Amino acid sequence: MTAPAAWRPVLAPAVRLRHDRVREVDLLVLPERVVVLRGTAGAVLRLCDGDRDLGTIVAELAERFPGAPVDTEVPAFLDRMHEEGWLR
């Protein structure tokens, strides 16, 4: 899927985003496994609330991380999360 700008991503019902304070990492908690997120992945996924569309998410991240290639990397990352079934 190539994410349309109007897509309003949200975590799938069985997926939870948690922060492990001991290891200082963000985690995706799934029914039968845990995925450790690296870098800013947790910050990106926290914006996926079903209210913000993809364009808004990219704009917010571009403001937070000036100079980062969020306009290409964020849609590609969210596409992968969708393909895994972790986002709707």
Score class of each variant (00 low, 15 high):
3 A>V: 12
12 A>N: 06
41 A>E: 12
88 R>W: 04
84 E>T: 04
75 P>Q: 10
36 V>D: 06
6 A>N: 12
63 E>T: 12
24 E>H: 15
31 P>L: 00
42 G>H: 04
29 V>C: 07
65 F>T: 06
64 R>H: 09
19 H>Y: 15
14 A>S: 14
72 T>S: 12
37 L>D: 04
15 V>N: 03
50 G>S: 05
32 E>A: 13
10 V>P: 00
8 R>Y: 01
15 V>G: 01
44 V>A: 05
76 A>H: 10
40 T>C: 11
23 R>A: 14
23 R>C: 08
27 L>Q: 13
23 R>M: 11
54 L>Y: 01
77 F>T: 05
13 P>E: 02
24 E>W: 09
69 P>D: 13
80 R>L: 13
84 E>W: 15
56 T>P: 02
40 T>R: 14
11 L>M: 06
81 M>Q: 11
72 T>D: 14
62 A>S: 14
38 R>N: 07
13 P>C: 01
29 V>Q: 11
30 L>G: 05
84 E>D: 09
48 C>F: 04
3 A>D: 04
13 P>H: 03
72 T>N: 06
48 C>W: 01
39 G>E: 10
79 D>T: 15
80 R>E: 15
86 W>C: 01
84 E>Q: 14
61 L>M: 13
50 G>H: 00
65 F>S: 08
67 G>Q: 08
26 D>P: 02
2 T>F: 12
53 D>N: 14
55 G>V: 05
59 A>W: 03
85 G>V: 07
21 R>T: 12
3 A>T: 10
22 V>C: 05
17 L>C: 05
40 T>F: 08
31 P>Q: 00
52 R>H: 15
18 R>E: 12
73 E>L: 15
45 L>E: 02
19 H>I: 07
74 V>P: 00
26 D>H: 12
77 F>I: 02
18 R>H: 09
10 V>R: 08
7 W>I: 00
32 E>P: 00
50 G>K: 00
34 V>H: 02
41 A>H: 02
3 A>P: 06
8 R>K: 15
73 E>H: 09
63 E>K: 11
16 R>C: 10
85 G>S: 08
57 I>K: 01
63 E>I: 06
72 T>R: 14
88 R>N: 09
49 D>I: 04
82 H>S: 14
68 A>H: 09
83 E>A: 15
82 H>C: 11
14 A>C: 05
39 G>M: 04
74 V>G: 00
78 L>R: 02
24 E>M: 11
33 R>Q: 13
74 V>W: 03
80 R>I: 06
81 M>Y: 05
40 T>P: 08
76 A>D: 11
73 E>M: 13
1 M>F: 10
48 C>N: 03
6 A>I: 10
77 F>V: 03
53 D>R: 08
66 P>Y: 11
62 A>R: 11
7 W>L: 10
84 E>A: 13
80 R>C: 06
45 L>K: 03
84 E>R: 15
85 G>L: 08
6 A>W: 12
